[in-house]
Amino acid sequence: MNNEWPLWEIFIRGQHGMSHRHVGSLHAPDAEMAIKNARDVYTRRNEGVSIWVVEANAITASSPSDKGPMYEPSESKVYRHPTFFDIPDEVGAM
């Protein structure tokens, strides 16, 4: 049996962050230890307040060759981006 500790992907939300961001990976025997290891490895400089860990095996990634079909359609939906709309200065911040 392979006795290497499984690989975990680490996601951390920083003090002022709105969402968890992928920061890297590490090895740990289980999820609880992965969280502790993440605290020691990835928050040495006060980077985070909340940690998620996911076993790397459990992640399904899009295939890079799909880059075109997966993402290009959204590139044409520029109206999703707030700067698309011209707002008169007089109405104030929006």
Binding site: H27, N37, V41
Partner: peptide
């Protein structure tokens, strides 16, 4: 014994 423990012990 393992990198993650090395880092944790140093902390």
């Amino acid at each position: 014994p393992v990198l993650e423990e090395d880092i944790a012990l140093a902390n």
